[in-house]
């Protein structure tokens, strides 16, 4: 059974050329892909647009059909309380468990704030965070 807390992130590879990001955004618009959270990372030669979207599998196929390189990556969505110390709680339990956060980015929703993180042990992190009483986003909630 698949873990309902594993969120599929799309990693879209974008060349560092003027207009490339706009072209990708155009594809997202064309297929009415609703972006719930995103992050733009760049190396010196190309960038990676990381996006949490509704219906990631369909979006993946659509983006791919346009010749754009896209990969699926498992991430976790941590629900953040609107109070100081939320980030510490999550980072602390993972750190103590020896799980490395590779990157993360925040998303502010209507009702809640989320922190999407990519870790080196997704299943392990989900178990540890839940055990520590930290709420995670379910796939169905995206």
């Amino acid at each position: 059974m698949e873990n309902e807390n594993i969120i599929t992130q799309l990693s879209i590879f974008v060349s560092n050329e003027p207009g490339r990001l706009a072209a990708i955004a155009g594809i997202l618009k064309e297929f009415k892909i609703n972006v719930k959270g995103l992050n733009l990372a760049e190396s010196s030669e190309f960038g990676i647009l990381r996006a949490i979207v509704d219906e990631p599998d369909k979006a993946y196929d659509n983006i791919r059909s346009r010749g754009v390189i896209v990969k699926k990556t498992d991430v976790i969505g941590i629900k953040m309380k609107d109070a100081p110390g939320s980030l510490f709680d999550a980072a602390d339990v993972l750190g103590k468990a020896g799980i490395n956060i590779e990157y993360g980015y925040a998303y502010s929703g209507r009702n809640l704030d989320y922190l999407f993180v990519r870790v080196d042990d997704t299943e392990g992190a989900i178990g540890i965070l839940k055990k520590a009483g930290i709420e995670l986003v379910k796939r169905s909630e995206i």
Partner: peptide, 13 residues
């Protein structure tokens, strides 16, 4: 190569 493309910046470096 597309098949070995990683989205991990550290790995790319």
């Amino acid at each position: 190569n597309e098949s070995s493309l990683k989205e991990d910046m550290t790995e790319l470096l």
